[in-house]
Design a protein around this nucleic acid. Structure first.
Ligand SMILES: Nc1ncnc2c1ncn2[C@@H]1O[C@H](COP(=O)(O)OP(=O)(O)OP(=O)(O)O)[C@@H](O)[C@H]1O
Length: 755
DNA sequence: CAACCTTGCTTTTTT
DNA sequence: AGCAAGGTTG
């Protein structure tokens, strides 16, 4: 039996109402995810439901992993055959299994955003739409929006009321045609196609309806229409659907998430049991009050009670630093202090930020200080040129119809097949209504009409035949060959390494990336019984991160975006970049709705913290080449002063910034470093772990006390008026001569010498 | 067709 | 700022 006495009455009600629709609408830390995990454990162990009949859907990969591990902690009952995954993964599996029923090759590959964009660009060229006037991205997002509203081309046509929409419609049609020809799908298709498949094929629908007796959705506020409709279809037979969510934590509206789903749920399932939870078990009173002071300014919301029995705890710590490097140093010093002095574990701590770009400096400083860290998601490892090239070869092996991948590598490495030849080839393929690969095949087998063949001169023809032969060789690699071995063969056959060496300055780093890629492939084969290229590719399309480290067994610091942090919790949370333009982000500033979402995002961040929350801002931040002055985020103004304390105050920015820029640091920034969250990196970091408090400050040599006369490299002579311990460092206040004023510095950083 | 030079863009957030 | 696509020249 799973004991349910560690749940409060309301939670228990939600867990034990195993029949019929249930909606839990409750604030952060009130135990919504706990309800789902206990509910599953209860169904398995107490009700004897077969795990095969249970499905729990989440929104992000991180959340789904979190849920699996929480359930493992509760019960060991047959949880292997439980279905816990993201909507996209879930749909991908259904689609692959039933692909043939909708005339789709079950080896279909999933294209990424940049592939989508290049298809759109081609389509636009074909339709003679000027990409300068209508950016392809706009078309792409219109199509993507349509798909998440379950509008296929026909549905879209019915709605295409104005000029713009009819233009989009034309693009949409051709785009779909190309996808179908290539036997590929995009991410939105995973949902859309599954929906229409279930809708139109009653026997498939029945199969899944029968199977999924119990359906649960976490973070329901972030589902889009397509996801919700799929969930409705699947649960319509047993009607055991339990959704949990919090409108105040809706932060994915830009991805077409729609909180109206919550309202509709109440309407559609008029018999739904609606449960609200109002006790927060996660955060200290201070953190909770701070968070509420942020969210309560939103006009477009319904107030929810949220209280906690937890103690008041620590005040919210505000740090203000001069620039992003000092910010990183200060925070990581504090992290090390927490570990060495307050017995915190690195895994208790997370540093969060609005934009991925902010992780860069943190990483550098972590590496310098030997702090093991894990960077969640982000880094565009799979978007690097060399990796995309290899992926294109792999995709082509899995699915030769994939034109986009073929075009990508037809002349990479250079085979003297240029633009002209490629466009001729495409036009022939177009006329014959064949994929490029099939066209090549016809050409080689000399089956195409001579008047078409004429378009290619003899030189090109030879080169094309050479390329086709190469492809054939790759396709002949036996299916059971390990993926890493396939990659090795590709590299051999195409002489890819020689190509890199010849063409790029950073080729060593690119070669390292390739080695890393092979390692990832090798790990994958090791952990997956069936050595399936298709599954490998699918994983790469749907899971953004490369790590498969056991998350609980190792000690490292977490670096994560606010978005990905949703649903997670950490004893200690740092949020950096609390500046206007960052949070709230500049791009959200001219829309009230988006501004409210920024506020919610901030609220989500605050409420991740259990014990201690640190907020950090800088006076200046190097961003996109510029070096901008920042003003504090408006959200900081909303915090009641009595809840906060300011940890460090640096003097107003002055000329001394140059000293900052010249501070020596290791590891020059390079895009071409190895992937950020792999074992390699992890091992490197943990090997050099060293928690030396006095690393930066050597008190013996730098001993500076009140009354000392010093000389500062920029400001000249001055008198020390204050010395205060600050983390592992000291903050010293100096009164300078010659009316240069009073300024504060960090001892470890300031270029000063004792007179 | 490839090498070289110039322009233009980084989505904010993720499946 | 730095990279990659796009345009131009050899
Ligand atoms: N009844 C309870 N007794 C003790 N601890 C609880 C109880 N309910 C929840 N908790 C704890 O509170 C924390 C937050 O729970 P949970 O993550 O389920 O909240 P949530 O509502 O899903 O939060 P969020 O909306 O932020 O995702 C967890 O550490 C959980 O173990």
């Amino acid at each position: 039996m799973i004991p349910l006495d560690s749940l409060n009455i309301k939670q228990r009600e939600a867990v034990e109402t195993t029949k019929g629709p249930v909606l839990v609408n409750a604030g952060p830390g009130s135990g919504k995810t706990r309800v789902i995990t206990y509910r599953i454990a209860n169904l398995l162990t107490n009700c004897g439901i077969n795990p095969y009949n249970i499905v729990a859907l989440t929104f992000t990969n991180k959340a789904s992993r979190e849920m699996s591990s929480r359930i493992s902690n509760l019960t060991t009952d047959l949880r292997n055959s439980l279905t816990i995954s993201t909507f996209h993964h879930f749909c991908s599996r259904i689609l692959r299994y039933n692909a043939t029923s909708i005339n789709l090759d079950s080896n279909f590959s999933i294209i990424d955003d940049s592939d989508r964009l290049s298809i759109i660009k081609n389509v636009m060229t074909e339709l003679k739409i000027d990409p300068k006037i209508t950016p392809p991205r706009v078309i792409l997002s219109a199509i993507s929006n349509a798909k998440s509203l379950l509008l296929n081309t026909d549905g879209f046509k019915a709605n295409a009321s104005d000029n713009f929409k009819s233009m989009v419609y034309e693009c949409y049609q051709l785009y779909e045609k190309q996808l179908h020809l290539s036997q590929v799908v995009d991410l939105d298709d995973l949902l859309l196609k599954v929906f229409f498949m279930l809708k139109s094929n009653n026997s498939i629908l029945k199969t899944y309806q029968n199977r999924f007796e119990h359906l649960m959705i976490d973070e329901f506020q972030d589902t889009n229409i397509a996801q919700y409709e799929i969930a409705k279809l699947l649960s319509n037979q047993h009607r055991n659907i339990c959704v949990v969510g919090d409108p105040d934590q809706s932060i994915y509206s830009w991805r077409n998430a729609d909180i109206r789903n919550i309202l509709d749920f109440k309407k559609y399932y008029s018999d739904a049991k609606i449960i609200s939870l109002s006790e927060n078990y996660r955060s200290s009173q201070t953190i909770l009050t701070a968070a509420q002071s942020i969210i309560s300014s939103n006009k477009n919301r319904i107030h929810k009670d949220l209280w906690t029995q937890n103690s008041k705890g620590h005040p919210v710590c505000l740090t203000e630093t001069f620039n992003e490097r000092e910010e990183a140093t200060t925070i990581l010093n504090e992290v090390q202090r927490l570990v060495s002095e307050e017995k915190m574990k690195l895994s208790d701590i997370a540093i969060m930020y609005r934009v991925n770009a902010l992780s860069r400096v943190l990483e550098e400083v972590c590496i310098q200080n030997g702090i093991p860290y894990i960077l969640v998601g982000s880094i565009k490892f799979y978007q690097r040129q060399e990796i995309k090239d290899l992926l294109a070869y792999l995709k082509l092996i899995a699915n030769p119809k994939d034109d986009t991948s073929l075009i990508r590598i037809i002349n990479t490495p250079s085979r003297k097949i240029g633009k002209k030849t490629i466009s001729d080839l495409s036009s022939i393929a177009n006329v014959l209504n064949l994929t490029i690969f099939d066209t090549l095949k016809q050409i080689v087998e000399e089956k195409i009409p001579p008047e078409l063949q004429k378009r290619l001169n003899r030189g090109s023809l030879e080169k094309i035949k050479g390329f086709y032969k190469l492809l054939k060789q790759l396709l002949d690699i036996p299916e059971n060959t390990a993926i890493s071995e396939i990659i090795t063969r590709i590299i051999e056959k195409t002489q890819y390494e020689e190509y890199l060496k010849h063409h790029f300055d950073h080729f060593e780093e690119r070669l390292e990336n390739i080695t890393e890629f092979k390692n990832i492939a090798w790990d994958f084969s090791k952990n997956n019984e069936e050595n399936s290229l298709i599954l490998f590719l699918e994983r790469i399309s749907l899971v953004n991160d490369t790590d498969n480290i056991d998350e609980t067994s190792s000690e490292y610091l977490t670096l994560i975006t606010l978005h990905q942090a949703k649903g997670l919790e950490y004893p200690i949370v740092f949020i950096i970049g609390m500046e206007e333009g960052m949070i709230p982000h500049i791009k959200s500033m001219d829309s009230d709705a988006e501004m409210e979402e920024e506020r919610r995002l901030c609220y989500v961040g605050f409420t991740r913290a259990k014990q201690k929350l640190y907020l950090s801002r800088t006076f200046r931040r190097g961003y996109r080449g510029g070096y901008e002055r920042n003003i504090p985020s408006r959200f900081l103004n909303d915090l009641p002063k009595e809840l906060t304390f300011v940890a460090s105050e640096i003097s107003e920015p002055t000329e001394y910034e140059d000293d900052w820029v010249n501070q020596e640091y290791q590891s020059p920034p390079s895009k071409y470093s190895s992937p950020k969250n792999t074992k390699t990196r992890f091992n490197q970091s943990s090997k050099s772990i060293r928690y030396d408090i006095n690393k930066d400050v050597n008190p013996k040599e730098n001993k500076i006390s009140i009354g000392d006369h010093i000389t500062h490299a920029t400001f000249g002579k001055g008198l020390v008026t204050h010395v205060r311990k600050l983390g592992n460092d000291y903050e010293i206040t100096i009164a300078f001569t010659d009316n240069k004023g009073i300024k504060k510095f960090l001892l470890s950083m300031a270029p000063i010498t004792k007179d």
